[in-house]
Design a protein around this nucleic acid. Structure first.
Length: 172
DNA sequence: TAAGTGATCTCT
DNA sequence: GAGATCACTTAA
């Protein structure tokens, strides 16, 4: 049983989407080939009040996709070399997204994006088959007891309150 | 542990 | 236009 996740799945509480994304499968079509990896680690960025979120400083050209429709990709470059792959959540106008930090054997968001051959070409595009990058539910259920909640990575600048929030979900 | 790397944002 | 800042990786 395969279902491609659509807007209703993502137009929901960001934390809930983040948690439920674990065990789902990210699929990339390159020409006639398809590669896929189960999602193992994610981070939630929820709303303008979240100091760790790009959206906390208001809407800019870069983070505009976060304010858009759920189920769209938000892709950007950090440290001059790594693409970060996020899926937008929540309703239009509410800035939120989930960062894909790990998929398959890959650890670290930069490597996951590299393995999937993701670049800004996917920024602000919908997650569906036509785009060539989407997420499937293949019926795998990750048990609650197999999910670990941890603080997010690299967001100390957000201050102790937000930096300590356990918005990161990992499959153990 | 620290350097590499470049888009983006915030001042002038 | 210049300068600071980064949701990271790799090699040492």
């Amino acid at each position: 049983m395969k279902t491609i996740l659509q807007e209703p799945f993502f137009n929901c509480s960001t934390l809930k989407v983040a948690e439920e994304l674990l065990g789902k499968v990210i699929v990339r079509r390159i020409g006639s080939r398809e590669i896929s990896f189960p999602i193992t680690e994610v981070e939630a960025y929820d709303g303008h009040a979240d100091k760790a979120s790009h959206a906390s400083k208001g809407k800019t050209l870069r983070n505009a996709p976060m304010f858009g429709e759920a189920g769209f990709w938000y892709v950007y470059l950090v440290y001059g070399m790594h693409w970060m792959l996020n899926i937008v959540t929540g309703s239009r106008g509410y800035p939120a997204a989930v960062l894909i930090r790990g998929a398959g054997d890959m650890n670290g968001p930069g490597r996951a994006a590299k393995a999937l051959n993701v670049t800004k070409r996917f920024n602000n595009r919908p997650a569906n088959r036509a785009t060539g990058l989407w997420i499937e539910d293949r019926g795998v259920v990750v048990k609650k007891s197999d999910i670990k909640r941890l603080p997010r990575v690299g967001v100390d600048y957000a201050g102790p309150v937000w930096a300590k929030r356990k918005y990161r979900f990992v499959v153990v």
